[in-house]
Design a protein around this nucleic acid. Sequence first.
DNA 1: TTGAAAGCGCTAACAC
DNA 2: GTGTTAGCGCTTTCAA
Lengths: 328, 328
Amino acid sequence: MIGIKQIAEEAGVSKTTVSFVLNGRHKHGLCISEPVAARVLATAKRLGYVRNELVQAVVKGRSHVIAIIAHFSEICMPIVTGYSDEAAAHGYSIRLISMNGDLEAALMKAVAARVDAVVALGIPVEFRTPAMEKFIRYGIPIFGLEAETHLLFFDQTHAARLASEHLALLGHRKIYCCHEDSEVQDLRLEGYRAAMREHGLEESIIHTAHLDVDELLATGADAVFCSADHIALKIMHDLYLRRMFVPETLSVVGFGNTAAGKQASPALTTVNEPYYETGVLSCRSLLHRLETGKELELQPLSSELIVRESTAVNTKYNRHEAGEKKPK
Amino acid sequence: MIGIKQIAEEAGVSKTTVSFVLNGRHKHGLCISEPVAARVLATAKRLGYVRNELVQAVVKGRSHVIAIIAHFSEICMPIVTGYSDEAAAHGYSIRLISMNGDLEAALMKAVAARVDAVVALGIPVEFRTPAMEKFIRYGIPIFGLEAETHLLFFDQTHAARLASEHLALLGHRKIYCCHEDSEVQDLRLEGYRAAMREHGLEESIIHTAHLDVDELLATGADAVFCSADHIALKIMHDLYLRRMFVPETLSVVGFGNTAAGKQASPALTTVNEPYYETGVLSCRSLLHRLETGKELELQPLSSELIVRESTAVNTKYNRHEAGEKKPK
DNA sequence: TTGAAAGCGCTAACAC
DNA sequence: GTGTTAGCGCTTTCAA
């Protein structure tokens, strides 16, 4: 592996000069003569020199690496990819630290690698505080423990409102919301509520644990907003087993725009959750804080409704009855 | 950040002694007295010492980092996770290098970071050779360019044979294979062929580009083996639009065990493709080669059939006709 | 405009 | 058993 020293010898100058040229000091501070600079650059290229970033990191105390600690699963890939791409754009790179139970061990690895920052993805609350105490004294900033990126940079509630509203605009009156227990889904539930309120419709909320399609149908449900795609898929599946069709029987909306929804029969109407973009934004904000010390203000991403086959206009009520707000 | 020097001062010994103790030399070569070792260890812990791996890497010329270069997409997450977990188990860690068009740039980043090895995932053939030439002279081993991990460590053909055989065993006679153009899918096609041969059935192969469900049905197809889940899902979708049911109309088998298949209606029968395990194995083999210089012989993973709802016994033919090999 | 020399935190011959 | 010393490849003061 050829280094700065070889270049210096070849070009007949000192290591310092080479270092200066390689760091572009001759442009800014103009301390080196044109011909020398050119010669150094030329020999560097000829010799195929590649800077040793490890050493640079040691000397400068900044590694330009940010660690992501997570129990890597399907779901966090797009976020990680977002981080990786944005980091690359700023000259940083991502180091993965698998966390299999022991947060403290993972954090120590990050310290050992002298990363410039660590971001923790999807770490259960119980792990958070204890390990932290020991960690902060190393002075490495840590992100993502207070709130997940998809909470901070994406307006869950608004997206859910969009999805629920879509059902109302199609003329549905008895619109259920089917949800599970989770921090995110609570926000989505809020969105559903807002939509119902706005359209003067009654709230009908049901937890997946108590979901029974037959009962649901018996109540005269027109449509159901599910606070996650997989819930919607589950309902459609239950209907399929009964050989009942969607959206004739029931209009169904999901949340998340997962691949499964896209490929389902019928293709699922949903709102997308921009994981990748969320990763990008999150990384950008982190880097900004790291380099300027200031907070970067950016407004949360909003969602778009993806209308596919699982929702249709409701023909059960006549137009007069259906709506103060009429279907679009 | 506290270092080896502070420990030495605190414990009243030299840096060397500390270094030896910290590296466990006192166990192996027994060059340090018990009490001293204990004292050093104690002060190290008390001061919260964490070794600077950057420096270690510089000095020893081994960074214990392996770079993964890819255009990170949904599909490569499980592989990456496999790598990350296995790497962690061997004291290595993974560094992500996003490759957005420029392989050479990505490779140079790997060199700059002085990673111990790089693995390239899913790099299109046209990129491969050109950038490589310049890279090899840096002496960093590169893996994954000749063949993808899911080709090397997983028996695609056998898995496809399993899936196709499942249909034959259910008493189907006219079994189609629906496929696309790709290196992997060619292997799967081979598995289908083997199964047909073995069961004395005729091959009926159709490319997705020419797929038309109505025509397919018109030929009297009993079942179809799809060389990827999404193809199966597409067929089921086409049937759904015609309000025809699976598996009554047609038994359908996929390949890959994607989330979409699991959540589909009906739930898709398929064979699983162990991406995660494939990543683990691939990483293990890489690390073995790196540390011992020898090739690690490991036999490719085999697959398991996952029977769900999209396949059923064929009742169209009477038992006598149906089979030399009878349904299980 | 250039170069010598000190130092970043650690390892490893080689002495004592 | 333990300490001295010379590096690893690069940055950066300070002097020439």
